[in-house]
Nucleic acid binder design. Structure first.
Length: 576
DNA sequence: GCCGTTTTCGGCCCGACTGTTTTCAGTCG
């Protein structure tokens, strides 16, 4: 069983958890966590680097020791330090750290004093009133632990960005209605456009924090108030989403927005740079001693530490700071750069609106062209089209294009890639189309080599233009299929075809790290809505967010091209 | 355990809220 980066990251995280419970040197623990993050973020499999004899200590945060442990895990499938920790501590004790309010020190005390090793034992200890007797714990802590355990049992998972947006919007409307509130901004992973968010971080600019807090805690969607002070409150909404609210004064806006946008890793890196320059950065500003030198705007914060402004989507400590320092930050693609959409459905297959209405809706949001790409016959559940039905739709598109003004429909298909790598419709039919999107809709669990070969083979088809939702995952519902994405991207480059970034909030597929990979390999990415109704074009904003997280610029995105250029790019692909 | 324009040793980001104490540790973001 090959060791993936995620496996290595999980092992390092577990080591960090267990060391923390043992009370080890916090900086040693941080080194493991940092290593886990680095590995988890890498676009290439570390296993392959090892096979190629690469020196792993060249990776940031990986020194001789961690490199040795990575080598050990990859070559033996075992990790001796983790095995030692498992001998010294109960097997599932790190699970206890997942209970909010329980950190390593309390877990250690609970284990030593009450022999609590599992969440169930913790629940029983709290119910029996045994926890309150431990020094440093009290009745309230015991009650909070019991509540947290019960909340953990029916804990909600991370919420998709588009769903979180709905809750964020109504909270912002509420907050703006509170007297004295001057500005409201959603920060955190929401602002960084992560595909899912664990909570909402909301920043409020107001003169009086306590007044805002008093009103906010009366918001009728709140189920539980976890904590509330004059500048900070933490609540759980009835929908299961946690909201952290911060209130600062107007002059702190930039510093606070930067601080609460994160990511945590990016913030730490910035504060470290500040420290090296004799500065201190917090949510109130940038300070030289007691003198405040910046913080009104985010730009001023970056300027104070000698960096260009870094857009929120890049703030993950994945090279953006080095790029800012070197003046190499990308000029990220924007929603307004999109001139067309290359993936949409109508009532002819499983869409909800007519050709005509989809065309008008696309025009309405400022697009110049829209490719109609129904499913093919194999996907019967979505009423996939056969050759005859597709030919009829092509005729209809020709007729409609003569009537339409300001929008052009392109003739396409989202054709199933069969398990042998063939396409689900005859060549003669595909040859008539402007665009052929290949998609995997079956056989998700093929082994990696077979799945990869299937897609490479499909790309070799002379009419193949674009690979739809390349990893096939549904966020929080279906894992991506196991493919060698680098091979696929390189093959696309060789064949002159393109990759889709499917903007549907359930998909957001390509992943951000694969966008970066495509950019490095010079393969253009098409940000497509996969619209099934006239409302779905709004999802393009999430696709653009994901593309920005993947460092894509206007020039890296296929559908920022004009209709003329698109036609010529698609034709060129066909003729390769 | 990592790292280096200050450094191969001695650093390693910063503040708010809670609960238990009575000045602060633990946790969280």
């Amino acid at each position: 069983m090959p060791v993936h980066n995620a496996d290595l990251a999980a092992i390092f995280e577990e080591i960090a958890d267990l060391l923390e419970i043992q009370g080890a040197n916090p900086f040693r623990i941080r080194a493991y966590r940092n290593g886990a993050r680095i590995l988890g973020d890498l676009p290439h499999e570390v296993r392959l680097l090892v096979e190629q004899g690469e020196d792993l200590t060249r990776l940031p945060g990986i020194g001789v020791d961690l490199a040795g442990k990575i080598n050990e895990i990859i070559s033996t499938g075992r990790c001796s330090i983790l095995e030692r920790l498992h001998r010294e501590l109960p097997p599932h004790i790190s699970e206890l750290l997942k209970i909010p309010g329980l950190g390593p020190k309390r877990v250690r005390v609970l284990y030593h004093d009450l022999d609590v090793q599992t969440i169930e034992q913790l629940r029983r200890a709290a119910k029996d009133g045994r926890i309150r007797s431990i020094p440093g714990f009290g009745e309230k802590t015991e009650l909070n632990i019991l509540r947290a355990v019960e909340a953990h049992a029916n804990q909600s998972r991370r919420i998709k960005l588009a769903v979180a947006a709905q809750y964020a919007e109504s909270i912002c409307v509420f907050l703006r209605s509170i007297p004295g509130v001057q500005q409201v901004a959603v920060a955190g992973s929401f602002r960084r456009m992560r595909e899912t968010v664990g909570d909402l971080d909301i920043l409020v600019i107001a003169s009086s924090g306590s007044r805002v807090m008093q009103s906010f805690t009366g918001y009728d969607e709140i189920a539980t108030v976890y904590s509330v002070g004059d500048t900070r409150a933490s609540v759980l909404l009835k929908c299961g989403l946690q909201v952290d609210l911060r209130v600062v004064g107007q002059h702190c806006y930039g510093a606070a927005l930067h601080y609460f946008t994160g990511s945590r890793e990016h913030g730490i890196a910035i504060r470290r740079i500040a420290q090296q320059r004799g500065l201190k950065v917090n949510e109130y500003g940038v300070y030289h001693g007691f003198r405040r030198v910046a913080g009104d705007s985010e730009e001023s914060v970056y300027q104070a530490v000698g960096l260009a402004y870094i857009p929120p989507e890049l703030r993950e400590d994945r090279g953006e700071i080095e790029a800012a320092r070197a003046g190499r930050l990308p000029h990220l693609v924007e929603l307004s750069d999109l001139r067309g959409d290359l993936h949409a459905h109508t009532t002819a297959s499983d869409g909800h609106d007519s050709l005509h209405d989809m065309a008008l809706a696309a025009k309405e949001i400022g697009l110049e062209y829209l490719a109609i790409t129904e499913h093919s016959r194999r996907l019967a559940v979505a009423h996939g089209l056969d050759s005859l039905q597709l030919a009829r739709q092509c005729d209809e598109i020709d007729r409609l294009n003569e009537q339409l003004c300001g929008i052009t429909l392109l003739k396409g298909i989202e054709v199933d890639i069969l398990e042998d790598g063939g396409l689900d419709l005859p060549d003669s039919v595909l040859a008539r189309l402007d665009i052929v999107i290949g998609a995997v809709h079956s056989g998700f669990d093929l082994p990696r080599a077979k799945q990869t070969k299937r897609i490479l083979c499909a790309m070799d088809h002379p009419n193949f233009t674009l690979l739809a939702h390349p990893c096939g995952r549904l966020i929080e519902r279906r894992a991506p299929y196991d493919v060698d994405m680098l091979s696929i991207i390189r093959h696309a480059g060789k064949r002159g075809c393109f990759l889709e970034l499917n903007a549907h909030p359930e998909r957001l597929d390509l992943l951000d790290i694969h966008c970066q990979m495509a950019k490095e390999e010079g393969v253009l990415v098409s940000i497509n809505s996969d619209a099934h109704s006239v409302f779905d074009f709004h999802n393009l904003r999430y696709g653009v967010g994901q593309a920005r997280r993947g460092w894509l610029e206007k020039k890296d995105v296929l559908n920022t091209r004009s209709l003329t250029d698109i036609r010529s790019l698609l034709r060129r692909t066909m003729s390769v």
